[in-house]
Simulated scan of single mutants.
Amino acid sequence: MKKAFLFVALLIIGGCSSTRDISNVDISESDLLAGERLLKIQIVAPGIKAEGSGSWISNDLVITASHLFSDMPLDSIVRVGNGRHWLSAKVVAGNDPATLDLVVLRVIGDESVASPLKTLIPVCSKPVKPGEMVSVSSALPKGTTYTYGSPNFAVQADSERRESTEFLTGFYDKGTSGGPVYQVPGGCLAGVISLGIKRKNGASDIYATKFVTAHEIKRFLDDNKITY
Results as ranks from 00 to 15, higher is better:
23 S>Y: 07
70 S>A: 14
46 P>G: 08
105 L>Q: 04
226 I>K: 03
11 L>T: 10
157 A>G: 03
211 F>L: 04
118 K>Y: 12
171 F>E: 06
88 S>P: 00
201 N>E: 15
35 G>F: 11
162 R>V: 10
6 L>T: 13
46 P>K: 11
48 I>W: 02
143 G>V: 13
9 A>R: 12
167 F>L: 02
185 P>S: 13
124 C>L: 11
4 A>Q: 14
155 V>A: 13
4 A>I: 03
32 L>C: 07
184 V>Q: 00
150 S>M: 02
99 T>D: 15
148 Y>A: 00
89 A>D: 04
181 V>W: 05
83 G>M: 12
39 L>K: 06
118 K>I: 12
69 F>M: 15
128 V>M: 05
207 Y>H: 14
155 V>D: 05
70 S>L: 15
33 L>H: 14
94 G>I: 09
211 F>I: 03
35 G>D: 12
46 P>F: 07
163 E>D: 09
61 L>I: 09
137 S>M: 01
126 K>N: 08
152 N>E: 15
217 I>P: 12
212 V>R: 01
64 T>A: 15
17 S>N: 11
56 W>E: 09
178 G>M: 10
82 N>G: 11
67 H>P: 09
226 I>T: 03
84 R>H: 14
60 D>A: 11
67 H>N: 08
71 D>G: 07
11 L>H: 09
84 R>A: 14
38 L>F: 02
130 P>C: 03
179 G>T: 02
164 S>M: 03
139 A>K: 00
195 L>A: 11
111 E>I: 08
58 S>Y: 08
63 I>G: 01
93 A>P: 10
209 T>L: 04
54 G>V: 12
211 F>S: 02
6 L>A: 10
117 L>D: 09
132 E>W: 00
136 V>W: 04
205 D>G: 05
214 A>L: 05
96 D>Q: 07
26 D>W: 04
141 P>I: 01
10 L>E: 14
23 S>Q: 06
80 V>M: 06
20 R>L: 11
151 P>Q: 13
165 T>Y: 06
117 L>R: 03
201 N>F: 12
228 Y>L: 08
177 S>R: 06
39 L>C: 04
157 A>I: 08
201 N>H: 13
194 S>H: 05
167 F>E: 00
45 A>D: 08
117 L>F: 12
43 I>R: 06
174 K>R: 13
66 S>K: 07
129 K>V: 10
227 T>I: 08
173 D>N: 10
64 T>C: 15
164 S>P: 00
122 P>Y: 02
145 T>P: 01
122 P>G: 08
192 V>H: 01
146 Y>S: 01
203 A>G: 14
185 P>N: 03
112 S>H: 14
119 T>S: 12
166 E>C: 10
136 V>A: 11
124 C>W: 01
68 L>T: 08
5 F>G: 04
139 A>F: 07
137 S>W: 02
16 C>D: 14
31 D>W: 15
220 F>R: 02
100 L>N: 12
227 T>S: 10
40 K>P: 00
220 F>C: 03
93 A>F: 04
105 L>H: 12
65 A>C: 09
